[in-house]
């Protein structure tokens, strides 16, 4: 069984395995830093811990936009480091059987999976996620 947090970025659905999930927060003003990579929205103080907040629009190849009050920050961790994912909307947590995900992967509108690796965010096609 795969448990995924479904979220939306400009109407496109992505999913984060809940194994990465720490918490979901409303968007807050972020601190900027010099030489900030364009896929980083800024820095956030999470109860004394500094997190880099990734702009999922940029990771998804979409145009950046100003942060809105309705945006959400998904705090995720791969066990080594925590980071934040700035997204438009949280849909729901859904559980999928392997065969359901396989069927979904055949659809041209299949959602994609967000994974963490090397302190970075990687967006994978569902088929690649299942192959792994």
């Amino acid at each position: 069984m795969h448990e995924l947090l479904m979220l939306a970025i400009e109407g496109t659905v992505f999913a984060v395995p809940t194994t990465y999930l720490v918490e979901v927060l409303p968007a807050v003003a972020l601190s900027s830093m010099p030489l900030q990579p364009d896929y980083i929205s800024g820095l956030m103080n999470l109860r004394g811990e500094i997190l880099a907040i990734h702009d999922m629009r940029r990771h998804a190849g979409l145009k950046a936009k100003e942060m809105e009050e309705t945006d959400k920050i998904v705090v995720a961790s791969d066990g080594k480091i925590k980071l934040g994912l700035l997204v438009d909307k949280i849909e729901a947590v859904q559980r999928f059987k392997e065969e359901q995900l396989f069927a979904q992967s055949l659809s041209p509108r299949a959602f994609r999976i967000i994974e963490l690796k090397d302190r970075n965010v990687h967006i994978k096609d569902l088929q690649d996620y299942l192959d792994d």
């Binding site: 830093m33 030489l35 990579p37 980083i40 820095l43 880099a52 480091i81 090397d118 302190r119 970075n120």
Partner: peptide
Amino acid sequence: ILPEGALKNPHGL
């Protein structure tokens, strides 16, 4: 806290 391969930044936080 920045991704591996990001611009090396010698400064801190």
